[in-house]
């Protein structure tokens, strides 16, 4: 694994809707590997590797969850709204960083009833500013959580495995790609965490014959986890369904066949929360048969998202077999 690349990807600034820094980084990596690179009006980066076959769209999202400042108080404290699904419990006492490098900490107001977890509206960001006038941050500025990316044996912990691991995987896939029976489009999408709108509009523009999202999924292998037949390290997960879609059987089965052909371990995934870009892509124009290849990930939407290196390597191998 190219940990240096993964480290750069996972620590780049890219809250939903503000993906420029991640896009710039990915553009430099993929431009030499493909025939064309373009950016859509909504900020999705599309890398096109020309081929004579049907159009295949592979997508991973660049954006990460974050926050946006909704109000600056007299005394310089920042109120905020979530960009994507922020869990209040995970947000408490986290560090956040703004695009201009300013850092702050998420704090909680003193509350009368401490028995329930606080709502985001009961929290504020303290950047140490003495007053509203002296605050270097204004209403409308986005921020991301702060977290180092580290390797722990076969596992990696970082704040943006969702879904920079997908971006990493697709870059690695393009690096290793030798033969493809498809006219191949690899999209690094914007705004998945908020509205799936980057993938939705990219799929309209590309008009693919088939689409596969690459994203993280939850696991059932942690203490008192909701029962779910996906574990870390047991291979990439081929999605059957989630809250937003039922994977197209042809796309699902093509991935299963590719894995079996190569003797790659894989798992079948039924996710009871959340969805991916695939849900939006399948509804583009007259409909696009779509599926999703998932990387099992623990502690999703926390600054400690954890994936297994082997799952990532095998997912790349599976995609290479799928297009061969």
């Amino acid at each position: 694994m190219d940990f240096e690349l993964l480290h750069r990807l996972t620590t780049a600034f890219g809250p939903s809707g503000y993906e420029a820094a991640v896009r710039e980084l990915i553009r430099k990596e993929v431009a030499p590997l493909v025939d064309e690179v373009e950016v859509t009006p909504l900020g999705t980066l599309i890398a096109h590797k020309k081929g004579s076959g049907p159009r295949l769209l592979l997508a991973a999202h660049m954006d990460e969850i974050g926050v946006i400042v909704s109000y600056v108080e007299d005394k310089g404290f920042l109120r905020f709204a979530p960009l994507g699904g922020i869990f209040p419990l995970y947000a408490i006492a986290q560090r956040v960083r703004f695009a201009n490098g300013v850092e702050g900490v998420v704090a909680v107001e003193r509350r009368k009833d401490e028995s329930k977890p606080p709502a985001l509206s009961e929290m504020y960001i303290d950047i140490g500013a003495p007053s509203r006038e002296a605050s270097p941050i204004r209403v409308g500025e986005p921020a991301v959580f702060v977290g180092e990316t580290v390797r722990v044996g076969e596992r990696i912990i970082g704040k943006t495995m969702d879904d920079r691991i997908g971006c990493y995987l697709l870059i690695d896939f393009l690096r290793r790609l030798r033969t493809s029976r498809f006219d191949l489009y690899v999209a690094f999408t914007s705004q998945e965490e908020t509205t799936l709108s980057g993938a939705r509009t990219a799929a309209f523009g590309i008009e693919p014959d088939m689409a596969v999202a690459v994203d993280v999924t939850l696991t059932g292998d942690t203490p008192k986890a909701l029962p779910m037949a996906v574990e870390l390290g047991k291979g990439p997960a081929i999605k059957v369904k989630d809250r937003g879609m039922v994977a197209h059987p042809r796309v699902r089965d093509a991935m299963v066949e590719a894995a079996e052909r190569e003797g790659l371990p894989y798992q079948m995934e039924i996710l009871t929360f959340g969805t991916t870009d695939a849900a939006a892509m399948q509804l583009a124009r007259a409909g696009v048969p779509s599926g999703c290849l998932s990387i099992p990930c623990r502690h999703v939407h926390s600054p400690g998202e954890m994936v297994d290196v082997n799952d990532v390597e095998r997912a790349v191998a599976l995609l290479l077999a799928l297009v061969a």
Partner: peptide, 20 residues
């Protein structure tokens, strides 16, 4: 005015039309 997601206004429907 900071609006963290799809805005619930015509702006949302327009933004995701066609290629975006």
């Amino acid at each position: 005015e900071a609006i963290p997601r799809g805005s619930g206004t015509d702006a949302w429907a327009i933004q995701v039309s066609r290629e975006g």
